[in-house]
Amino acid sequence: MASGQPLAERSASAIADTSCADVAVVILNWNGRDFLRQFLPAVLAHSAGATVLVADNASTDDSLALLRAEFPTVRVLENGANLGFCEGYNLALARLRGEFRYYVLLNSDVEVTPGWLAPQRALLEANPRIAACQPKIRQFSPDPAMRQLFEYAGAGGGYLDSLGYPFCRGRLFDTLETDTGQYDDVRPVAWATGACLLVRAEAWHALGGLEAAFFAHMEEIDFCWRLQNAGWQVWYQGSSTVFHVGGGTLHKSNPRKTYLNFRNGLALVYLNTHPAELPAVLIGRVALDWVAALRLLLQGQTADFRAVLRAHWHFMRRLSYWRKRRRQFPARLRLSERAGTYAGSLVWAYFGQGKRFFRDLRSEK
């Protein structure tokens, strides 16, 4: 495991510079009026110096009326249609090109805390090789005990196993850890969550933003993997904390989410795995996906079973497109060269060996 010691490149002047005037905090919204009313005040209160914007995906509720009436200082970018997470952000940030040095992709259902932004910006200021980072993500809840739990979308930093399955420190499948300070470090990871992603504008535009064909789910993992293949780094900043509701658009039990996760999961490994490792990884991934599909069928979740079948079929139908994208962004890093990787199979470790916590995984880096 890589150590969480301070960055060698970190300088006293960089850490002292906590100004966020070069940061755009961009909240993508689609019919999220209630989330905006609930969480936007804290974003405005705790993001001193930064510019807060809402990119609206043609909401049909009164989100825009709410923003005009209650948050007149918030800049609004209207996309004109529901473009999904990927294209919604791609279009919004394209309009901001040249205005800001850093962007924060912030979900509308995230509660930020005092001092959440400056440590993340300081991290990127201290090391120009870091293109993106995330804070610690805990569950939003009125229950104080629940607020101590890590949240699915990012937790203590994103990792990948040998077959490209994503997981987090603090969350393996349905097992969530309580935050006791075990992930208060600062370290490189495989991916940073799209729920609260600080990214260098230069890197964002160099890679063309998020993969539009993903629409939603795993798009930030693909983006972070592409960043690493291009020579950038992705980090976790454990001294910054936010709270995430989660499932604000699609609940994890929704077959549509099952479809997106399985389709995008295949695309993720196809696009980003090193050529020498791709055949074995893809075969292993397809095999385990079929095991998961059969498990869903045996559990009576027929809609989710069919969603997995559709996901594989639609991935194959667009194979020529994925090939083109793979050529455009070459997969240069082997498993042993990637930060935030577990050299084994997370599925086997969790279901076969009963390993429920990140600390039980012995071959991560």
Rank of each mutant, 00 (worst) to 15 (best):
residue 242 V to C: 07
residue 270 Y to G: 05
residue 122 A to W: 00
residue 7 L to G: 03
residue 341 T to I: 14
residue 327 R to I: 04
residue 235 W to Q: 05
residue 130 I to W: 03
residue 205 H to Q: 08
residue 104 V to Q: 02
residue 128 P to F: 01
residue 250 L to R: 11
residue 224 C to K: 03
residue 338 R to C: 12
residue 144 P to Y: 12
residue 336 S to Q: 14
residue 206 A to M: 08
residue 200 R to S: 13
residue 62 D to V: 00
residue 231 G to Q: 13
residue 88 G to T: 05
residue 216 A to E: 14
residue 273 T to M: 12
residue 91 L to V: 13
residue 239 S to C: 11
residue 205 H to R: 09
residue 73 T to P: 14
residue 221 I to M: 06
residue 256 R to N: 13
residue 175 T to V: 15
residue 92 A to G: 05
residue 86 C to D: 13
residue 133 C to E: 06
residue 277 E to W: 01
residue 221 I to C: 07
residue 322 W to E: 09
residue 223 F to L: 15
residue 357 F to M: 12
residue 143 D to L: 13
residue 215 F to E: 13
residue 336 S to V: 06
residue 254 N to R: 05
residue 253 S to I: 09
residue 19 S to E: 13
residue 35 F to Q: 09
residue 180 T to M: 07
residue 362 R to G: 13
residue 137 I to G: 02
residue 179 D to T: 00
residue 310 R to M: 10
residue 9 E to V: 01
residue 252 K to A: 11
residue 172 L to M: 14
residue 365 K to W: 13
residue 286 V to K: 10
residue 239 S to A: 09
residue 5 Q to K: 12
residue 80 G to F: 08
residue 130 I to E: 05
residue 8 A to S: 12
residue 289 D to N: 11
residue 69 A to Y: 00
residue 237 Q to A: 12
residue 201 A to S: 15
residue 153 A to Q: 10
residue 20 C to N: 11
residue 234 V to I: 04
residue 152 Y to F: 14
residue 221 I to N: 01
residue 362 R to Y: 11
residue 254 N to H: 15
residue 198 L to I: 13
residue 208 G to M: 07
residue 199 V to F: 00
residue 293 A to P: 02
residue 219 E to A: 12
residue 363 S to H: 13
residue 173 F to S: 08
residue 271 L to I: 04
residue 310 R to P: 00
